[in-house]
Computed example of a mutant assay.
Amino acid sequence: MDIQKQIATVWPQLHAMAEPAFQEVRTAKFVADRLRELGYTVEENVGGTTAVVGVLDSGRPGPTVAVRSDMDCLLFKQEDGSEKAIHACGHDAHMTVALAVAQLVKEQGLPCGRVKLLFQPAEEIGKGALVLLEAGALDDVQYALGYHVMPKDMARSGQIIPQINWTACTLIEGEIRGLAAHGSQPHLGINAIDVGTAIVNAVNALHSNPLLGGSVKTTRFIGGAGSLNAICDKVSIGFDLRSTSNAEMLVLRQKVADIVTNTAKLYGAEGESHIVGTCPAAEADPSLLALTKEVIVDVLGTQGLLPAANITVGEDFNFFKQEKPELKTASLGIGCDLEPRLHDPEMHFDHAALEPAVKVLAQLTLKLLQNA
């Protein structure tokens, strides 16, 4: 198999058909058609969405190893007000790698068990992994391998991080409802801006264990769109929560919800909040991490192996482990001289660096089956 030729052929096509969350129709058809060409059994529209699952069965008893790729892109506002779909997070690269891995393990042959290729939608909004879980796509899986192209300051071309310790993140949206009044009679109203300010101050006073990296930031405060001499009766407020601990994240969520509700009540207003999106923190499996390091060194040499890395970004791949604790997972970081940064419409990377990632993931998949 000429991996570089495969990358040069597949990546431009996927990059050109960028589609946002749950709208990956052409993308899903592309990967499904390619998997069928390789001899995989393919299920489309998994969970009633654009998700695609491809299975290669050796016909011999053994574990199932899943290789997961996300499919969606990001939307960017243009000068004319329109939105442009761009693969600025590397999901086109992820799909390219997954399809190459699918071909490589097929050519090398499975010693036993099965390989599953999971192409999930909607990673950018944190909902795609849950679709696969709810549809039962992980029910028979013992090992799940995820990966992500990484910025240049974290990994260079020819380097791979064996485990990315993604951070738990939660986005919360709240609404404060006060009572409108004329500015000359503030005692007859309940100023939602005052209430919202008190909530922000209370949230800023939250302190968590510094070793867990917990933080809560107010990221939205909208209110007072009416006349300047009117008491504001409604405020929209938003928060970003982060922690390296899933347990601490649950505590932070509850504290923010309580602050919104109870502070509003103290002022005679009404406050409610709801979670807009969430991703759990990574929970790596030590035995799988050791094997991943071994394979990286085997493919790239010791100079290609980087230490496990912590990152303050969320990744919904981690729902797999949270919802199925017995699952053994690895989340690799692919060095590819990516610049200037993820989620930048001008993001670009070294395509040649995808080849070692393909080899590492294919070899890791086969070793997991060989060691069964």
Rank of each mutant, 00 (worst) to 15 (best):
A102L: 06
I161M: 03
K116G: 13
D298F: 12
Q370W: 00
S273K: 01
M249L: 14
R68K: 13
Q163L: 05
Q363F: 00
V251Q: 15
S82V: 05
S227F: 11
A284W: 05
P121Y: 05
A85L: 05
E339A: 12
I193D: 02
P210G: 00
P286Y: 02
L291N: 07
I237H: 02
A137K: 11
L228F: 13
G277I: 12
A282C: 10
Q254N: 14
H187I: 07
L132V: 07
P121N: 07
A21N: 09
R60S: 15
E294I: 06
L250E: 15
V256M: 07
L75T: 08
L332W: 05
A8T: 01
V216T: 14
T261N: 03
T27Q: 01
Q108A: 04
E79N: 10
P12M: 05
V203K: 12
F76S: 04
I222A: 06
M150T: 07
G90W: 03
C232E: 00
D316I: 01
L117F: 00
K367Y: 03
L99F: 00
T27E: 02
L211T: 12
H274D: 02
D80R: 06
A135Q: 02
I125R: 11
E43R: 15
Y40E: 05
E339L: 08
E339F: 09
C73G: 04
P151C: 12
K234I: 11
P186S: 05
A282G: 06
H148E: 14
F76W: 09
E283R: 06
D337Y: 06
V195D: 11
P280D: 06
V53P: 06
P20G: 01
L145V: 15
M17H: 10
I160N: 01
I334Y: 01
C169N: 07
G277S: 15
F221K: 14
V256W: 08
I296Q: 09
R242V: 09
V55A: 04
G128P: 15
L132Q: 02
D70L: 11
L14V: 08
A8K: 00
L133I: 15
L369P: 03
F22Y: 14
V97L: 01
D92S: 05
S215H: 03
G304E: 09
P325D: 05
T302Q: 12
T365P: 08
A205F: 03
E323D: 04
E315R: 02
E83S: 10
G196E: 01
A129M: 07
F319D: 14
G226I: 08
M1K: 00
D139G: 02
G109L: 09
N371V: 06
A330D: 14
A98P: 00
F349W: 08
A290L: 12
D72C: 10
S243D: 04
Q254L: 11
S273C: 09
P121R: 07
S215C: 10
D140I: 03
A51V: 07
L250A: 15
I161G: 01
V101L: 01
R34S: 06
D70C: 13
F119T: 04
G268S: 04
K77Y: 01
G48T: 06
D33C: 00
R34L: 03
S236Q: 05
G301M: 07
Q303H: 11
L364N: 07
K328Y: 04
T170N: 13
T170Q: 14
K84S: 10
I275D: 03
I190K: 15
L104C: 03
E272R: 08
L118H: 13
